[in-house]
Simulated scan of single mutants.
Amino acid sequence: MKLVTTGQHCDDLMDALTEFRESGPTVQRWGAQLARRLSGGARLLVAGNGGSAAQAQHLTAELVGRYREDRPPFSALALHADTSSTTAIANDYGVQEVFARQTCAHGRPGDVLMLLSTSGASANLLSAATEAHRIGMLVWAMTGPAPNPLEAVSDEALCVNAPVSATVQELHLVAVHMVCEAFDRAIEENTAAAERRTAGEHRTRKEDSA
């Protein structure tokens, strides 16, 4: 196996990041749409394997907790984080069903399922995407280079064009933070708009009663 120097690692990351910047509009749209759905009572389900599981759980932590400024918590579940359910399902139904069965249990029409995979070929994520579509959920994916099977079965995918899994995962983390930035911005804008509407309605009532 050819070893990569630390300098080469940084060079590979910079090359991939330059191309990744073109994904900005997609990430912005995801954050805004996620803000609308979660504010309306929907939830986000996320899943991944290995390092991608860590990235997925990072996203749920930012939404249930906070990213930067204080705001209300929002419903986001990392399916792989429930080790008892995951291992029980794997034992009884097979590894391919560990996320699909949890998606069936927790997912509702209008919810969002986000799947992270460097290969875009993980069988358990593909099964989860199929189940989510059956329920009526929106399916997003973060993957490595396109085309890949997960991209093909998702409603929309953000594909990192990098040959090394480590670089893909590093840019998935960048994407997670960018989604959180867009999410928080949309929440702030929606809150401000609601406050303006409430103030306008209050003024109208005062004028009508004068």
Score class of each variant (00 low, 15 high):
Met1Tyr: 04
Lys2Ser: 12
Leu3Ile: 06
Leu3Gln: 13
Val4Pro: 03
Val4Thr: 09
Asp11His: 06
Asp12Arg: 04
Phe20Asn: 15
Arg21Thr: 02
Arg21Tyr: 02
Ser23Cys: 09
Gly24Glu: 10
Pro25Thr: 00
Val27Gln: 01
Gly31Lys: 05
Leu34Phe: 04
Arg36Glu: 03
Arg37Asp: 04
Arg37Leu: 07
Leu45Ser: 12
Ala47Lys: 12
Asn49Thr: 10
Gly50Tyr: 10
Gly51Gln: 06
Gly51Cys: 09
Ala54Asn: 05
Ala54Asp: 00
Ala54Tyr: 02
Gln55Gly: 02
Ala56Ile: 01
Ala56Cys: 06
Ala56Leu: 02
Gln57Asp: 14
Leu59Phe: 14
Leu59Gly: 13
Ala61Cys: 14
Leu63Ser: 06
Arg66Ile: 00
Asp70Lys: 11
Asp70Asn: 07
Pro73Gln: 12
Phe74Glu: 10
Ser75His: 12
Ala76Trp: 10
Leu77Lys: 12
Ala78Ser: 11
Ala78Tyr: 08
Leu79Gly: 04
His80Ala: 12
Asp82Val: 03
Ser85Glu: 07
Ser85His: 02
Ser85Asp: 07
Thr86Trp: 04
Ile89Phe: 13
Ile89Val: 15
Ala90His: 15
Asn91Cys: 15
Gly94Pro: 11
Gln96Glu: 10
Glu97Lys: 01
Phe99Lys: 01
Ala100Trp: 01
Arg101Thr: 05
Gln102Cys: 09
Pro109His: 01
Gly110Arg: 06
Asp111Gly: 05
Val112Asp: 03
Val112Arg: 03
Leu113Val: 04
Leu113Asp: 05
Leu116Met: 14
Leu116Ile: 08
Ser117Ala: 11
Ser119Arg: 13
Ser127Trp: 01
Ala128His: 13
Ala129Gln: 10
Thr130Gly: 11
Thr130Tyr: 05
Glu131Val: 12
Glu131Cys: 14
His133Trp: 07
Arg134Val: 07
Arg134Asp: 12
Met137Cys: 10
Val139Pro: 09
Trp140Arg: 01
Ala141Cys: 00
Ala141Trp: 01
Met142Leu: 05
Ala146Arg: 14
Ala146Trp: 09
Pro149Cys: 13
Glu151His: 05
Ser154Asn: 04
Glu156Gly: 07
Leu158Asp: 01
Leu158Val: 03
Leu158Cys: 07
Val160Lys: 02
Ala162Val: 01
Val164Cys: 05
Ser165Gly: 11
Ser165Gln: 14
Ala166Glu: 08
Ala166Tyr: 07
Val168Gln: 09
Gln169Asp: 02
Leu171Asp: 04
Ala175Ile: 03
Ala175Phe: 06
Ala175Pro: 10
Val176Phe: 06
Val179Leu: 13
Cys180Asp: 04
Glu181Val: 08
Arg185Thr: 09
Ala186Glu: 03
Glu188Trp: 00
Thr191Arg: 08
Ala193Gln: 15
Ala193Ile: 07
Ala193Leu: 15
Ala193Met: 11
Ala194Ile: 00
Thr198Tyr: 08
Gly200Asp: 09
His202Gln: 15
His202Met: 14
Glu207Gly: 05
Ser209Asn: 13
